[in-house]
């Protein structure tokens, strides 16, 4: 009998707790949106990314939903974050820089090699581009596909496979983004580029992108260009 008498209080405390969590969650979402706007202004636009579609996509995609929960508070920090399996979600500026280079938008068909968390694919999709994404680590591929669907980017086509072969059924592509570069550029990917198509690959360690390699196809001719996301000032002694 005594235990029944405390039941209403327990229910009340539980409801209070749920309400509190809900308020906190709404506030957290609101805070994240503010952080995202600040990220775009301070880290992306201020560093020269001007493409309106890219900037709008970076403002729209909730980056904090693509990082492990433990890293959510750092989601909008100016740095890459670990996502497991030795992979990272790139620094926001690098994602924006790569997105701007491939000129995404409606009617553009883009292949991503290395889905990772799915964030880059979501940003591309948010511009209206038709996005195909391949991930070789099955666990990452499954989680990213579910996340993209859940967040409303279900139009992104994903596949758990070896990115070396590209996505021959959907080729040719206007652009290819390789988010985890290797010591060589897979020949099938170059084949799957349209004429005048371009491919971009980051070169560096997991937490430091040194350069971005831009590969361009003009008929039979393939050229590359090394782009520097952070310009280094040489020949200077410390002041």
């Amino acid at each position: 009998m005594r235990s029944l008498s405390v039941l209403p209080y327990m229910v009340f405390v539980l409801l209070l707790w749920i309400a509190l969590l809900s308020v906190c969650s709404t506030r957290a979402e609101s805070n994240r949106a503010t952080e995202r706007m600040a990220m775009v202004t301070e880290q992306i636009v201020a560093r020269g990314v001007k493409d309106p579609a890219t900037v709008a996509a970076m403002r729209a995609v909730p980056r904090h939903r693509f990082v492990p929960r433990i890293q959510a508070a750092s989601a909008y920090a100016d740095r890459p974050l670990p996502i497991g399996h030795g992979q990272t979600i790139s620094q926001p500026f690098i994602v924006a820089y790569m997105t701007e280079i491939v000129r995404p938008g409606p009617g553009r068909k883009i292949l991503e090699i290395g889905t990772g968390s799915g964030y880059q694919a979501a940003v591309l999709a948010a511009t209206g581009a038709e996005v195909y994404s391949i991930e070789i680590i099955p666990e990452l591929a499954t989680a990213a596909a579910a996340r993209l669907r859940e967040l409303g980017y279900g139009a992104v086509q994903t596949r758990a496979a070896d990115g070396y072969y590209g996505w021959a059924e959907q080729a040719p592509f206007d652009a290819i983004i390789v988010t985890a570069a290797s010591e060589f550029v897979p020949p099938p990917l170059i084949e799957q580029l349209k004429d005048a198509g371009l491919m971009i690959l980051p070169v560096g360690s997991p937490f430091f992108v040194q350069t971005l390699m831009l590969v361009q196809k003009h008929g039979e001719a393939i050229t590359s260009a090394n782009l520097m996301p952070v310009r280094f000032v040489p020949f200077r002694r410390a002041e």
Partner: peptide, 13 residues
């Protein structure tokens, strides 16, 4: 493995 292979390489790896 194809360390630094040319972008012109169209053979299998």
């Amino acid at each position: 493995s194809a360390t630094g292979v040319s972008l012109n390489w169209s053979g299998p790896l």
